Amino acid sequence: MSGESTVSSLGEVEVLRAIAERMPPPPPGETWGGDDTAIFPCPGPHLLFTIDMLVEGLDFDLAYCSGEDVGWKAMAANVSDIASMGGRASRAVTSLSLPPGTEMGLVSGLCDGLVAAATEWEVGLSGGDLSGGDQVTLSVALLGLLDGPGVHRSGAREGEAICVTGSLGGAAAGLRILRDDSLATVNAADRGRLVTRQRRPRARLKEGDALRRAGVTAMIDVSDGLAIDLSHLCDASRLGCSVDAATLPIDPALDGLDRNESLELAVIGGEDYELLFTIESDRIEDARRLLAPTGTPITTIGTIGGADRTLGDRALDEWRTLGWEHLREP
C-alpha cells in the first residue's frame, strides 16, 4: 500500500490549499481562487460559454492515463468547443469530485495537466469547486471571446464543400493501443504518437479563428467521431451530405492497417478534435492560406446538400449507430 496522503486523510481545507499552491496567480486587477467568485473585466460584447465533464470509467481510465493526461484533456475538450465557434479562449473554472481514497499525487497531476493546457491556450484558471464522489470527475467551464460573428452548426448552404482539418482516427487508434496493445502492425514511433493523440489532444484554436475569418459557414469539432458530428451539422443545417470515403485524411500512422479497419477508426473513433466545416468551394484556397502559419492541412471530403446523407457506400445513419454516445445503451 502506498504511504502517500489521501484526500480523506487531509480533509477539504488542506486539499484546497494544496491545489491553490499549484495554480498560477491572477493578472493585476483580477480576483481568482480564494473568494466566493472570480472577478475579471468583461472583455467584449459577445462571450462564448461552454462546459465539459470527464468521468472516470466512462471518459478516462487511470489504468492507462495519468492525472496530468486527464487534466489536459478536460481543458482541451473545452478549448476545442471555443475553436469550433471561431473564438478565443479566456477564463475557466473547474469542479473536481474525488473518492475518499484518492491519493494526493493524482490530485497534483490533475492540477498540473489543467495548468499546462491552460498555459498552452492562454486560459486563466479563475477558480473551482471540490467535492466527494464514487469516482474521479473533472468538469471545466470555459469562457471564450468572439472578434466577430460566431460560426454555428446551422449555417451550411446547399452545394458547399465539406472539409476537415488535420487527420482522423489517430486518437481512437491510440485508445486501442492503450486498452489492449493491439494494432501490432503500427511501428513503435507511430504507436507513441497515436497514444499521445489520445492522452493529450490538440485543440485547433488558431485554426478555428482563421477559418471564421476565411468565411466558413458552419463548423463543429470532431469529438464524438466524424459520423456523429457530421450528423449534428447536417441536422442543424437541415441538409443532406455526400462524403467520399476515399478522400478522408486518415492518420498516416494507420496506413499499414486494413483499409476497412482504418476507415472505421477515422469515421466513428472520435476524440480527434479536428474541425469539420462547410465553405464555398471558391474560398477553400483562402482558408488554406490563412491556416498556412499553423501548419494544419485542410482536406475536402464531400458536399453538403440534397436529401440523402451518405459516407462512402453506406448511409451516414448506419455509420452513426456504430459510434459511441453517452447515455445510449449498447
Rank of each mutant, 00 (worst) to 15 (best):
V195Y: 00
T196E: 11
R197T: 00
R199P: 01
R199V: 04
R200N: 06
R202E: 02
R204C: 06
E207Y: 02
E207Q: 06
E207H: 00
E207M: 06
G208W: 00
D209R: 13
D209G: 09
L211R: 03
R213F: 04
R213Y: 10
A214Q: 08
A214F: 03
G215Q: 06
V216C: 14
T217H: 09
M219S: 06
I220V: 14
S223Y: 04
G225Q: 04
L226D: 00
L226N: 06
L226W: 09
A227W: 02
A227F: 08
S231W: 04
H232G: 14
H232K: 15
C234T: 11
S242K: 12
D244C: 08
A246T: 15
T247Q: 15
T247N: 15
L248A: 04
L248W: 07
L248Q: 07
D251T: 06
D251K: 09
D251C: 11
L254I: 02
L257H: 03
R259A: 15
S262F: 08
G269V: 13
G270D: 10
G270P: 04
Y273R: 14
L276D: 05
I279C: 04
E280A: 15
E285T: 15
L290C: 12
L291C: 07
A292P: 04
P293F: 05
G295S: 03
T296I: 13
I298C: 05
T299K: 06
I301C: 14
G302S: 09
G302W: 03
G302Q: 06
G302R: 01
I304H: 05
A307W: 09
R309W: 11
R309T: 08
L311D: 00
G312R: 08
D317F: 15
D317K: 14
